[in-house]
């Protein structure tokens, strides 16, 4: 609570002050919600088979994060701390219902593919985690920035994983065959030279291995992130 009172006394900050910018850029690199904070992996990995699903899921999470952070931040002084989890769940659930209905109406095929994972945004740990750690103690505007930053960090990782899985698993990107076609009779591109898709990439375990490798690369570039054990 001390943070809240401090905020009130502080002189008015410009909208895009350094601190606010940092809220957006930090989660993209050294404080990534997935690889560093270990949040939100639950619903992230199963839907990274294709870039398109990753993009849609990322956008949905950004939407829910930003609006949810805003609502929680506006309500932060009214929520009794004993029932805050339930209040937060209700806010997220209502936003996710909106997302789900929009997806069903405008992108029925993607909605079909994402199946239960849209619903699982509700229990996505990133959202609950940011509500608890940030929106409950900060003013609306920084909360929005924090929502954008973490949402983008999550979406970015999703798209990165999906990029590798779709490129090597099905030889396409965003549904466009970039490596050529392997339909018998009309082969072109790499497939004429005997290239084969790596079907392993489509299977769930490879998503985990790819995230593991991303963490490896990230931590070997920034030694301060290395864990003791």
């Amino acid at each position: 609570m001390s943070e809240v009172t401090e905020n009130k006394k502080a002189p008015r900050e410009p909208l895009f002050s350094k601190k606010n910018k940092k809220l957006v850029t930090d989660p993209l690199t050294d404080n990534n919600p997935v690889t560093i904070q270990v949040l939100g992996i639950c619903s992230a990995l199963a839907i990274t088979v294709q870039v398109e699903q990753g993009v849609v899921m990322g956008l949905a999470v950004i939407f829910v994060m930003v609006l949810g952070n805003l609502i929680i931040s506006l309500l932060r002084n009214m929520i009794p701390s004993r029932i805050r989890i339930i209040v937060q769940l209700v806010v997220v659930a209502s936003l996710v219902i909106v997302v789900n209905e929009v997806l069903k109406a405008f992108m029925p095929d993607v909605s079909e593919k994402l199946s239960v994972f849209v619903g699982l945004i509700i229990t996505n740990c990133i959202i609950m985690g940011r509500f608890e750690a940030f929106a409950m103690a900060n003013k609306p505007w920084p909360s929005i920035m924090d929502g954008i930053g973490n949402g983008l960090g999550y979406a970015g990782l999703l798209v990165l994983v999906a990029f590798f899985r779709e490129l090597f698993g099905s030889g396409s990107l965003y549904g466009i065959k970039v490596l050529g076609s392997n339909i018998p009779g009309e082969e072109w591109g790499l497939y004429t030279m005997g290239y084969e898709n790596n079907n392993m990439m489509i299977l769930p375990p490879m998503a985990l291995v790819i995230v593991g490798v991303i963490i490896w690369v990230q931590r070997s570039r920034n030694k301060s992130l290395i864990e003791e054990h």
Partner: peptide
């Protein structure tokens, strides 16, 4: 375990391998 993989990284990769076994 190589430094950068310690903790989270290796857990992810092992989970992936276990997933392959479960498949």
């Amino acid at each position: 375990v190589p430094g950068p993989l310690r903790g989270l990284g290796i857990t992810f990769i092992i989970t992936g391998l276990m997933g392959m076994a479960f498949m």
